[in-house]
């Protein structure tokens, strides 16, 4: 059974038709990735799912329940959390405070504490720096924090927007390893990436976007083997 079903989504920025009928499904326990060029609409899909944007047409259901008309803050309480593009940590809050913000909608003190420990296990760097202002962290550390913050909501579905953006290759490896680890613990992941090679290599399934429409879909391996994808996104002939 699909955890998330987005059906024929049309999203607009004013008059600009950004998503032209997107249909995406994410099954429980999967890593699904959306790849595509700049401006293809990857981030728009994530923002439409998380409720920061609303579709003008189409439906989004989470476990069969429609969520596309809910405001962003109540979608969080249903178990969808997002690590936004460009990290966007709360720069003037400390690392620990940022993580607490992630658990904003939760009431179970015990669970929050457990998850905090878990995030510190996943990213020991964050534990070292928990009292530091988030704005003073390096890019990689901020990415870890953004992911940790999203995890603190104890999500069923984790939306990751370009987690490798602007990071050194060694950190990219670390981030992707962590995504696999998080997924192995039972969190479903919807991943948006420009680094198509890395994304496809860890994804169960993938969709390829072009200017607001899905042009290709398949398992990660299928797309890695697809000559079109190779040429367009992986820079290989």
């Amino acid at each position: 059974m699909a955890l998330l079903e987005a059906n024929d989504i049309h999203t607009f920025y004013g008059a600009i038709h950004a998503l032209k009928g997107i249909t995406v499904t994410v099954d429980k326990g999967e890593i699904v990735t959306l790849i595509g060029a700049n401006g293809a609409g990857k981030t728009t899909i994530l923002n439409t799912i998380s409720g920061i944007l609303h579709p003008r047409q189409g439906t989004i259901t989470l476990d069969g329940e429609p969520i596309h008309e809910l405001p962003a803050h109540s979608i969080v309480t249903r178990g969808v959390s997002q690590s936004p593009e460009g990290r966007r940590v709360f720069g003037r809050l400390s690392v620990a405070e940022n993580l607490e913000m992630g658990a904003f909608t939760r009431k179970d003190k015990e669970g929050i504490k457990r998850d905090l420990e878990h995030v510190y296990e996943l990213f020991p760097r964050l534990k070292e720096r928990r009292k530091q202002l988030a704005g003073t962290l390096s890019g990689g550390e901020q990415q870890m924090l953004a992911m940790g913050r999203a995890l603190m909501a104890s999500p069923r579905l984790l939306l990751l927007d370009e987690p490798s953006m602007g990071l050194a290759p060694i950190l990219v490896d670390l981030i992707f390893d962590t995504i696999k680890e998080i997924n192995a613990e039972g969190v479903t992941v919807l991943l948006v990436e420009q680094n198509a090679l890395m994304a496809l290599s860890i994804a169960h399934r993938a969709y390829v976007l072009e200017t607001g429409s899905i042009v290709l879909s398949g398992t990660g391996q299928e797309l890695l083997d697809d000559p079109e994808v190779m040429k367009a996104y992986l820079g290989m002939d």
């Binding site: 920061i52 405001p71 803050h73 969080v76 309480t77 959390s81 809050l93 904003f104 909608t105 909501a153």
Partner: peptide
């Protein structure tokens, strides 16, 4: 404070 820092993210955190 979260809204001051980043409205969109604050909203995405459930505020």
């Amino acid at each position: 404070m979260a809204i001051r820092e980043d409205e969109d993210v604050a909203q995405a955190m459930g505020i």
